[in-house]
Design a protein around this nucleic acid. Structure first.
Length: 498
RNA sequence: GGGUUGUUAGCUCAGUCGGUAGAGCAAGUGACUCUUAAUCACUGGGUCGGGGGUUCGAAUCCCUCACAACCCA
């Protein structure tokens, strides 16, 4: 932030700076180290419920909060204080309780947005409003900037750029900020109840892997080498299972150097978990359990109510469908894993799709799937059986040639989670990764690397297992109906020009 | 990457055909001992996102850059 000369400041900022200076000049503190506080506003409300009109309780308390409304009348002033979770309490300052000097200072020095401490008796006003009738007050922190209008919504951009202000003025912002940790807490409890162990694996990786995505690259001065921000923790979690951590999960950030839109953020929180002796079906049950338990924890029901008021049913067992059946239905002709690349290209052309010549057969099939189901798949559905050539870490389907045991969970039209029966044969795994490396050499920027240490770990024998991954931000989206940038407190925004 | 729309007071937004910049809230001064988005009176506040062009004259038309939202890939 550049330094603006004092007299170039907008009027309202200049006036507040002058008030701060005046407070300091008369020997008071604009930013004291502590202020009196005996109870939160919520505690005062809790302890003094159901009082009649115009009651004096005789109870003296000190409370603090941000001034969000201020109504100065001649000898009796009112202010509404708000604390972090949105709880509000009225403060009253009267001439006969605080004296003329303090009342005048309150009127002249305290502005909307300031944080104050008020000490006095808990009463109800003649209109019945629970209030603190001040004996004294202290400024806790002077706000040098005016609050935005309380009754008009902030523009979307300002909400994201100044989330701290958004949190002060918008109830939904406060709710959303608290919803996320509540979901995280439940996720960990759900895993814990199933005897899963939480581990933390590297975010700075020598070699990125575990997903098809372009990474962020960085450099370590100490090690004098390139490093990557991880795109997935998969290969490290599987190493854990080799070592006997039979049920593991990790909830942490992944980074993908790709486009950002209403459901993609360059950094996003991801749950991944692996269960020895499980398979894709085990992981589907686990995933449904995690989602439903999260819904129950935050809403007390599986019928979640979105921010726009619509309800969405996450309950029951969810529909399942085969990927190639959905493709066949969507394009109106039979498509199988054996359908050739050429035939798929004809279908894509008929659909008016733009085809990247680098796409391999399975990739094109998946693109056609996304094209024909665009905007559908609203109710939760497990889409099962993906092509082998795009899923190098997944075990071959036990019944259908050319497929792997992988499902994608779709909710509200977007992909919420994915689950596998994991490939555990190190010889086949090496073949698949060699194939990926050759795709990479041909210019596929999303292709996976040959991770020799991962293959060595597999050669020590990895037990049969299932694995799953779910985006935490997307889980929040499914629970709230919000866009991804509303589920993240501080999504990336380009700096404003000065 | 392509297209569309937007950027005006602290905030949210108007601004007609190109002719001296508007509102509500917020702010300043004064009045008011029961207000609840208090009320009443008066007052101040603008590089109209940045740069360039057309014109006697540009918030408005054109070009360009930045940022944002939405749609498409």
């Amino acid at each position: 932030m550049s330094q603006v000369p004092e007299d170039d400041l907008p009027e309202q900022l200049r006036i507040r700076r002058e008030k701060r200076a005046a407070i300091v000049a008369r020997g008071a503190e604009a930013y004291p180290v502590a202020v009196p506080r005996t109870a939160s506003l919520a505690e005062i409300r809790e302890r003094h419920q159901g009082l009649d009109v115009d009651v004096s309780t005789g109870v003296i308390e000190s409370v603090s909060g941000r001034v969000i409304f201020k109504r100065d009348t001649g000898k009796l002033c009112f202010a509404t204080l708000r604390e972090g979770d949105g709880t509000e309490l009225q403060a009253m300052l009267s001439l006969d309780k605080v004296g003329e000097e303090q009342l005048n200072l309150w009127k002249s020095e305290i502005d909307l947005g300031d944080i104050v401490s008020v000490t006095g008796e808990v009463i109800t006003s003649k209109r019945g409003e629970l209030s603190i009738l001040a004996k004294s007050y202290n400024l806790a922190a002077k706000s040098l900037r005016p609050l935005p209008v309380e009754h008009k919504p902030l523009s979307e951009e300002t909400r994201v750029r100044m989330r701290y202000v958004d949190l002060i003025v918008r109830p939904e912002a406060r709710t959303n900020a608290r919803l996320r940790p509540a979901v995280m807490r439940q996720l960990r409890e759900s895993f814990n109840a199933r005897q899963y162990i939480e581990v933390e694996t590297p975010m700075l990786q020598v070699m990125h892997g575990g997903a098809a995505a372009r990474p962020f690259k960085t450099f370590s001065n100490a090690y004098d080498m390139d490093l990557f921000l991880r795109i997935a923790p998969e290969l490290f979690l599987k190493r854990c299972v080799v070592g006997g951590l039979e049920r593991v999960f990790e909830i942490n950030r992944n980074f993908r150097n790709e486009g950002a839109d209403s459901s993609h953020s360059p950094e996003f929180a991801m749950i991944e978990s692996y269960q020895a002796y499980g398979d894709w079906n085990t992981m589907a049950d686990l995933t449904r359990g995690l989602v439903q338990e999260a819904a129950m924890a935050v809403y007390g029901t599986h019928q979640v109510v979105h921010h726009d008021g619509t309800t969405f049913d996450l309950g029951g067992t969810w529909r399942e469908a085969n990927l190639y059946d959905l493709i066949s239905d969507g394009v109106g002709e039979k498509v199988t894993p054996q359908t050739s690349l050429e035939d798929l290209k004809k279908i894509a052309a008929k659909l008016g799709m733009k085809v990247d010549p680098k796409w391999i057969t399975g990739k094109l099939a998946e693109e056609i799937f996304e094209h024909v189901t665009e905007g559908q798949l609203i109710e939760p559905i497990f889409v099962r059986g993906f092509p082998v050539d795009t899923s190098p870490l997944v075990r071959g389907h036990r019944e259908v040639e050319g497929l792997v045991e992988k499902w994608d969970l779709y909710v509200q039209g977007f992909e919420l989670a994915t689950g596998y029966s994991e490939l555990i044969d190190p010889v086949i795994q090496r073949e698949r990764l060699v194939e990926q490396a050759s795709l990479g050499a041909k210019g596929d920027l999303e292709a996976m690397n040959l991770d020799e240490d991962f293959l060595r770990a597999m050669e020590y024998a990895m037990p049969p297992m299932g694995g799953m991954g779910m985006g935490v931000d997307r889980l929040l989206m499914a629970l709230t109906g919000l866009g991804i940038r509303e589920t993240i407190l501080f999504p990336l925004v380009k700096p404003e020009e000065n």
